[in-house]
C-alpha cells in the first residue's frame, strides 16, 4: 500500500479541522460560513478520488445552495444570537454527542467491514453502457439503469416546494416569495447580475450537454441556472413570480411530467415502465435531462426564494 500524497493528507486534515470548527463555533453566522468552506474542500476531496460528478454536486448543492440557505437563515435569526442565549443544557448536549458519535461510528464500521473486494455493479454498468448511447456511466446509471430513483428525486423536489409553500400564512398566499429581497442592492451587485447571467446560462447548458459523456448533468446545470436567477433576484433586477403564477408552477412540474410520460410510453414501446426503445435511449435521456434541468432550476430558485409574503411587506413592485 502506497503512502497518501501530502496534498491528500493536507486535504483530510483541512476537512476534519473545518468540520470540528463548524461544530464547536458558537456563532451561527460563522458556522454557516465554515460550512461553505467545508463543502468546497470536500469537493476537492471528491476530485482527488476521481468522482468529478460528485465533486460538482457537492460544490454546487452541498456547499453553494445549502450554504446560502444557512446564511439566510442565520441572517433572519434575532440579533441576540439564540444559540448563545438558549444554549441547551449539558444533558441534551451529551445525548446529542453520543447519538452523533454512534451514527458516525456505525457508518465508519460499515465502511471498514465491507467485504474485499466490495460488492460492485460497476462492471455490469460498464458492460451495458453502450446500450444507452451515453458515455458517462453516472448519467447512464441515473437515467437508464436506476431511472426510477431519479424520477423519485425529481418528484421529491416538487414535494419539497409544496412543503415550503405550506409554511406561508393565509394572508400571504398569492404573494411573492420574500426571502431574497433585501434593502436596495449596491450597484456592483446589480452590475454583476447584469453581466454574469448570459455566461451562467451558457455554462448551465454546457454542463447539461457534456453530462451525456463527461462529468456534468442536469442537477449541476440546474444549480448554475438557479444561481443566476437567484443573483438577479438578490440584486433586485426582477421580482420573484407570485406563487399562484401558473406558468411558473407548470415549469416546476414539467420535468417530472416529461419523465413520467416517457417512462409510461416505455411500458408500451419497450416492454417496461421507464424502459427506452432500442436506439432511442440517448435522445430520450437528453430530452428528460433538459426538461428536468429547467424544472430543477425553477424549484431550486423558488426554494431559495422562500415562502410567499403578503404584498404590503413586499416593498416596491417593479
Amino acid at each position: 500500500m502506497s503512502l497518501p500524497a501530502p496534498v491528500d493528507l493536507g486535504l483530510a486534515a483541512l476537512v476534519l479541522g473545518l468540520a470540528g470548527w463548524v461544530i464547536t463555533t458558537s456563532a451561527t453566522y460563522r458556522a454557516a460560513e465554515g460550512f461553505v468552506a467545508y463543502g468546497l474542500v470536500l469537493a476537492l476531496v471528491w476530485v482527488r478520488l476521481g468522482s468529478v460528478d460528485v465533486a460538482l454536486t457537492e460544490a454546487a448543492l452541498g456547499s453553494g445552495l445549502t450554504g446560502l440557505l444557512l446564511l439566510r437563515a442565520a441572517a433572519r435569526l434575532p440579533a441576540d444570537d439564540p444559540a448563545e442565549t438558549t444554549r441547551p443544557g449539558p444533558g441534551v448536549r451529551v445525548v446529542a454527542a453520543v447519538l452523533c458519535t454512534a451514527v458516525a461510528g456505525a457508518l465508519a464500521a460499515v465502511v471498514l467491514l465491507l467485504p474485499e473486494p466490495a460488492p460492485s455493479l460497476a462492471p455490469a454498468v460498464a458492460a451495458n453502457l453502450s446500450a444507452t448511447g451515453v458515455g458517462n456511466p453516472v448519467t447512464g446509471v441515473l437515467l437508464a439503469f436506476r431511472a426510477v430513483d431519479t424520477l423519485g428525486e425529481s418528484i421529491v423536489l416538487v414535494l419539497a416546494l409544496v412543503g415550503l409553500w405550506s409554511l406561508a400564512p393565509d394572508d400571504a398566499w398569492g404573494g411573492r416569495p420574500g426571502f431574497l429581497r433585501g434593502p436596495a442592492a449596491a450597484s456592483p451587485l446589480r452590475f454583476l447580475a447584469q453581466v454574469l447571467p448570459p455566461f451562467g446560462i451558457l455554462v448551465g447548458i454546457h454542463l447539461l450537454w457534456i453530462g451525456a459523456d463527461h462529468p456534468g448533468g442536469k442537477f449541476q446545470g440546474a444549480t448554475v441556472l438557479a444561481a443566476m436567477w437567484v443573483l438577479v433576484l438578490v440584486a433586485g433586477l426582477r421580482q420573484p413570480p407570485r406563487v399562484t403564477s401558473r406558468p411558473m408552477r407548470g415549469l416546476a412540474v414539467f420535468g417530472s411530467l416529461v419523465f413520467v410520460g416517457i417512462g409510461t410510453a416505455g411500458a408500451w414501446l419497450a416492454g417496461a415502465f421507464l424502459a427506452y426503445p432500442e436506439g432511442l435511449a440517448k435522445p430520450l435521456i437528453l430530452s428528460i435531462e433538459t426538461a428536468l434541468m429547467l424544472s430543477v432550476a425553477v424549484i431550486l430558485g423558488l426554494l431559495l426564494a422562500g415562502p410567499p409574503e403578503p404584498d404590503d411587506a413586499a416593498g416596491v413592485r417593479s
Binding site: A186, P188, L189, F191, L192, V195, L196, F199
Partner: peptide
C-alpha cells in the same frame, strides 16, 4: 481564460460589496 475572467469579475464585485 474564462476561469480567470470570471474570478476577476467575482473578486472585483465582492471587493466592492465588502468595502461598500
Amino acid at each position: 481564460i474564462a476561469v480567470w475572467l470570471l474570478a476577476l469579475l467575482a473578486g472585483a464585485t465582492v471587493g466592492q460589496l465588502l468595502a461598500g
